[in-house]
Design a binder for these strands. Structure first.
Lengths: 309, 309
DNA sequence: CACCGAAACGAAAATATCTTTCATACGTGA
DNA sequence: TCACGTATGAAAGATATTTTCGTTTCGGTG
């Protein structure tokens, strides 16, 4: 049997083997893994150095699974096979041996003093940023930027927390002269998506990768021939089916008090910012004046800017 | 047949697989190598990363020798076989790759490659988070949380980029059962502010601290006796005048391509998250069930969450 | 200058390791 | 409960690595 996502998304755009942020990748991909694969991924993430010393068979035995499962896991993580995963593991081991200890953090508890909350939260978000940056496929990003820079029109879909990110992106793009719209209303989104054609760009933002309200308009845009981009935490999720380019956001561990929406937002915003800067670079000639123009315009909205000086 | 150097020098005192100083080892052992082996060793020392990608056969061909020779060389270098040499090579490659930092301290330039943009952006945002966390007055934060937890109703004001942050906060508070509204429309904001009274909370979010559209409703709320909170980057700005509590966001340096709005948003969101977690802690009894309830409700909006299994 | 033996070397067999295929078991929704 | 599609491991198949072994090379020697 052909692997389910093998053709469509398995390769995740031929992403280069992840360099370092393996733990993050494991977390990101965990939801699309089967139980046995999760077991393997967990062990690998837990002790990269140790696993690097094991053969497929050894790792299979250690995790109580089969060679096939180990290979499948390696594939899902973006490597051509176990051999390459092992190589990457060795590299990681060497790095972390020479580097610093990652300093573990505890979850945020109900009775944490407020100062701890601030510290933990800040740390977690920093971690999320690092993971996202490490896991972001710059090639895909580059292609996405090109598509945006050349777009006649850009539609961005997102609901819930992702809706705000969609708006953020839209605001930014508008500032540098692009024609962009954010849609949170699924019906209107689809209605608008129908208008798209080649050279237009549609962007879907969904952490879960399976938000129907967002996938539907993306599908329509895809069918109409527009370039489609997905910003998602599950690069193997249903949304990938209709995405020309996938930008992966990292998934930090969540706790009861810290819902996934929180870290996914941080991650999404970083991706969005990267897109924005990328586009601004490409269209610098027009972007720069547009940016300063909106600056100027805003200055007058502030009452007596010098009052507080 | 026993290998010639096996006893005499091959084991090199049973030395552990060399960690890094591979080039040195090659030089040391070169004299005791045969011509073909030297050729292999030379290539390996010259491009560890490249060799890590090769199989025995590949390396043999590249060096114009045979597999056996490659293996012999690996043995001489202190590894049990080629496989292990390759592993060590991969580690070495990873190390030296991570060594060259992209100089993240610099500003983002127009001609930065996309990978650098990602790195710099992530770094900047991490910095912003650290600064914000360090500069946040936890006492003020604690008081603000208390006010929120006891509030009958919460109004949040923000326009532009801050408007999205306002909405983010509102979404979160709603999730844990508070009554919260975000206002971007200055007129409606004022209209609503008039309804506020003691025990209600009004929050103004403005980076510049002098956004009239946001200050005005806060003033009204202040006058009506509500508890007012300002989240701002300029704690001395006009907005402070009407704020009972001030939560300071940090201001990262901005560049032409990276407008202030970008880092201020990161900072604001951290503060907002802290507020949220704080309130969730205080009202845990009601917040926890409310949180999981909204979780549940959303789960059904995802078309076949397991579709990717 | 032919001969001998030790050493170097690579071709190919033997082995280990990795990958793919396939049949079965499992779980899930109708 | 049944039917279907998924998950999984056993084993076959393909690669890579290691070992074996015969040939070649080279330096010394009669």
């Amino acid at each position: 049997m052909k692997e389910i996502f093998a053709g469509g998304t398995g390769g995740v755009g031929g992403a280069p083997p992840a360099p370092a942020a393996l733990a993050a990748k494991v977390r990101t991909l965990a939801p699309s893994m089967t139980r046995s694969m999760q077991r393997v991924a967990e062990v690998v993430a837990g002790d990269p150095a140790g696993c690097a010393a094991l053969t497929v068979t050894g790792l299979a035995e250690l995790t109580g699974t089969s060679e096939a499962t180990v290979v499948r896991t390696a594939r899902l993580l973006g490597y051509p096979g176990y051999r390459d995963l092992r190589l990457a593991l060795a590299g990681l081991a060497a790095q972390q041996q020479s580097g610093r200890a990652p300093a573990v953090t505890a979850d945020i508890a109900v009775d944490d003093p407020i100062a701890d909350v601030v510290a933990k939260l800040a740390y977690d978000e920093q971690q999320t940023l690092a993971d996202t940056a490490a896991g972001l496929d710059t090639v895909q990003l580059g292609v996405a930027v090109s598509a945006l820079a050349a777009a006649r029109r850009v539609d961005v879909y997102g609901v819930g927390a992702s809706g705000l990110v969609a708006q953020d992106l839209t605001q930014k793009l508008l500032r540098i002269g692009l024609i962009a719209h954010a849609h949170s209303d699924p019906h209107l989104a689809v209605t608008n998506a129908v208008q798209l054609r080649a050279k237009d760009v549609a962007i879907a933002i969904t952490h879960s990768g399976s938000t129907g309200d967002v996938i539907e308009p993306l599908r329509v845009a895809f069918d109409r021939g527009a370039t489609t981009i997905a910003i998602t935490g599950r690069p193997n999720g249903p949304v990938a089916q209709y995405a020309d380019h996938i930008l992966t956001t990292s998934t930090a561990r969540e706790s009861e008090l810290r819902p996934a929406a929180m870290s996914s937002r941080t991650s999404q915003l970083l991706v969005v910012d990267c897109l924005f800067i990328g586009v601004a670079q490409r269209t610098y000639e027009t972007a720069a004046p547009a940016l300063s123009a909106s600056y100027e315009a805003l200055a007058h909205r502030h009452r007596s800017g010098g009052a507080s000086r």
